[in-house]
C-alpha cells in the first residue's frame, strides 16, 4: 500500500494554544483552529515521516483508538487541510521543513 506524506505549507503561520493549534493561511488570512488530534498531525507534518507512522506512534499510542479507524480519519483530515491549502499532501516524501 502506498504511503502518504504531509508537510506544513510554507505560507502559514501557526501557534499551539493549549490543546488547539491556530493556523493562519497567509494568502487569504483565513484562520483555522485545529483540535488536539489535528494538532498532533500538524506538528508531525515534517514531509518525511509517513502518515501511517505518525498515526501509529502519536495518535494510536496517545489517544487509545484502533489503528484502522485512526488512519482513515487522519487521511480524511489531511485531505481536507490539503484542500484548504495549509498542508501539502503527497505520495512521495517531501523535503523536510524545520519546526
Amino acid at each position: 500500500m502506498k504511503d502518504t506524506y504531509i508537510r506544513r505549507s510554507a505560507d502559514t503561520a501557526a501557534r499551539r494554544i493549549g490543546d488547539e493549534t491556530m493556523v493562519l493561511a497567509v494568502a487569504d488570512s483565513t484562520l483555522f483552529s485545529l483540535n488536539e488530534t489535528a494538532s498532533v498531525l500538524w506538528e508531525a507534518a515534517d514531509g518525511t515521516t509517513p502518515l501511517r507512522t505518525i498515526v501509529e506512534n502519536q495518535i494510536v499510542a496517545g489517544f487509545a483508538v484502533d489503528s484502522e479507524t485512526a488512519y482513515r480519519d487522519a487521511l480524511e483530515l489531511v485531505a481536507e487541510l490539503g484542500r484548504r491549502g495549509i498542508l501539502e499532501v503527497a505520495d512521495q516524501p517531501l523535503e523536510e521543513r524545520p519546526k
Partner: peptide, 13 residues
C-alpha cells in the same frame, strides 16, 4: 468570528 474568539480566549488565558 474565529479571530474574535481567539482574542477573547487569549485575554482570558
Amino acid at each position: 468570528s474565529l479571530a474574535e474568539e481567539l482574542n477573547a480566549k487569549a485575554a482570558d488565558a
